[in-house]
Structures are given as structure tokens and as C-alpha cells.
């Protein structure tokens, strides 16, 4: 993680350079930062070992992203996370790097076996790092995320969510598992424990975890948001297709919807099938 002193040094050197050079340097730096962030995300080889059929639609708004995904295999269980950090661009990316590091740390030694406890611990780490104590003028940054833990025989999952839900499509019906209405970070009044939902899963169930980038994207003929109901319908329409086809359709759909409008936020959809 970058030390505040390093950030200050980088900022100072940016300010000192002439504007054109500075812009180019910023672009180069961001591009390189994007590569670093990409390297911190789990590689396809790692994900392939955990999931046989999946797709990840990952469209950062800029070179670096506030959305991230993360997987791990511990205690014969599969841990999957799709997350959306406060903001996008550089601030979001810094938060995402913090989130990834903390998730690795929490699961590296004495990994909690319950998804809600992982989120509780993650919140403590974020509050501690950002010195969040509930004072008025401090940072209120946090992470919205959904986390699934698939048990070893793939018969059930645990789900815990911070503002972001989980969609499961089974027998042509979409089941929404609601998340707790709070971020992983300081809350307005007091911090409450995250809840956990145990769900029986069946073969061929398809699970979708996502950030709000897709449904909140402006576009279409009237320049409105895509919204959740069409998003759910779209997933229902395409869920029987192959994973790479779903990826392509979702990407094309959102690109067409966006048209000439600017992408407003990072977009992340993590879909996978229970085999």
C-alpha cells in the first residue's frame, strides 16, 4: 500500500512539471498503475482452478478501477468477492488495493469460515487504516461488496453482502439474496454485525455478483439509467448461453446503451455456474 508520504511526493512532482509533460506523465503513470492493479487481481489460471464455468465483465471507467474481484481457496471452500469501492479512478483504486490486501491478510492465517465474520474483520481493518472513529470531519470511505463462500461439496453457499446483493438464476427464475444496508467501513450511527445467509444450491444454478456500474449507467434514447429491472431481465434472457457469450452480450448491451454518453462508473459483473 502507498504510504501517505509517497502520495505527497508524487503529487508534488506532478505540480512541478509543465502541463503537457505533466499530462503525459499522469497518463503514463495511470496506465502503469492500471497494470499493477490488474496484477493484483486474481489471474484466470487461479480462477479456473476454482470455477469451471464463469465470466467476468470488468470495465474500469479509467485506467485504474474502484471495482475489484477476488477469489481464494481455503479450508476446501471457495471464497468469491465482487466489490465496489467508494469513488472511482485513483481514489477508488487505492481503496481497492487496500481491500485486496486486507482480504488476503484476513484469509491467510486462521481464516474465518463465515462470510459475515470476514466482512466484520475487513471493516475493522478499513476503519483502523483510515482512522475512522465516527468523528464528523473524517473520511467516510468504504467498500460495497458481495461475498460468497461455496462449501466443499458445492451443495450450499454462504452469502454476506454490504449494500450489494446476489442474484441466483434457477429454473428460469431469478432469486435475489438481499445484502445488509451498510458499507464495509464506518457507518453513519453505529456499526452492526454483518449477517450471513446460507443457501442450498443445485447443479446448473447460475450466480451473479456485480457492482452498481451496469444498472446505473446512463444512456439509451432518453439518456436514463439502465436500472435493475431490465438488468435482471437481461440476465434471465441470457443465462442459458455459454459464459463467454453472456460476457459478450453484456458488454455489447452496455456499450450500445451508453452510445455517446460517458461511462459514469466502473462496471463489474462476476457470473459463475455451479457444476
Amino acid at each position: 500500500m502507498l504510504h501517505p508520504e509517497d502520495i505527497k511526493r508524487i503529487n508534488d512532482s506532478f505540480r512541478a512539471a509543465p502541463e503537457k509533460v505533466r499530462n503525459r506523465e499522469i497518463t503514463d503513470s495511470l496506465r502503469y498503475a492500471g497494470l499493477i492493479q490488474q496484477a493484483m487481481l486474481p489471474s484466470t489460471q487461479v480462477i479456473d482452478k476454482l470455477l469451471s464455468e464463469y465470466f467476468i465483465l470488468f470495465m474500469p471507467k479509467s485506467f485504474v478501477s474502484g471495482d475489484f474481484y477476488w477469489v481464494a481457496y481455503k479450508n476446501k471452500q471457495r471464497y468469491i468477492v465482487a466489490a465496489d469501492c467508494t469513488g472511482h479512478g485513483v481514489p477508488g483504486a487505492l481503496m481497492s488495493i487496500m481491500g485486496i490486501s486486507f482480504l488476503n491478510e484476513i484469509t491467510s492465517n486462521g481464516c474465518p469460515q463465515m462470510s459475515n465474520r470476514i466482512l466484520n474483520k475487513l471493516r475493522e481493518k478499513i476503519m483502523e487504516s483510515l482512522n475512522q472513529t465516527g468523528e464528523i470531519n473524517e473520511s467516510k470511505d468504504g467498500i460495497d461488496l458481495s461475498m460468497c463462500i461455496i462449501n466443499k461439496d458445492k451443495t450450499s453457499i454462504q452469502f454476506s453482502g454490504a449494500n450489494n446483493p446476489l442474484y441466483i438464476i434457477r429454473n428460469n427464475k431469478l432469486l435475489e439474496i438481499k445484502a445488509d444496508s451498510m458499507p464495509v467501513g464506518i457507518n453513519a450511527v453505529s456499526e452492526e454485525p454483518f449477517s450471513v445467509t446460507d443457501i442450498k444450491i443445485r447443479k446448473n444454478d447460475i450466480l451473479y455478483m456485480f457492482s452498481d456500474g451496469f444498472p446505473d449507467q446512463f444512456g439509451g434514447p432518453d439518456g436514463k439509467k439502465f436500472k435493475y429491472r431490465p438488468f435482471k431481465q437481461l440476465l434471465l434472457d441470457i443465462h442459458k448461453r455459454k459464459m463467454n457469450e453472456q460476457h459478450t452480450i453484456l458488454r455489447n448491451t452496455i456499450n450500445n446503451w451508453m452510445g455517446n454518453n460517458e461511462q459514469i462508473d466502473d462496471i463489474l459483473i462476476f457470473g459463475f455456474k455451479i457444476i
Binding site: 465474520r117 466484520n120 474483520k121 471493516r123 475493522e124 481493518k125 478499513i126 482512522n131 472513529t133 456499526e191
Partner: peptide, 18 residues
């Protein structure tokens, strides 16, 4: 105590404890 309960009932602060 879970960290949350420790903060809420024992030391009564909202500081992050990792």
C-alpha cells in the same frame, strides 16, 4: 467478545481494531 461487541460494550468507542 467479537471486535464489534468489544467496542460497543467494553471500551465504548468506534475505533477500528484489526
Amino acid at each position: 467478545f467479537s471486535t464489534l461487541d468489544f467496542k460497543k460494550f467494553i471500551i465504548k468507542t468506534r475505533v477500528g481494531i484489526s
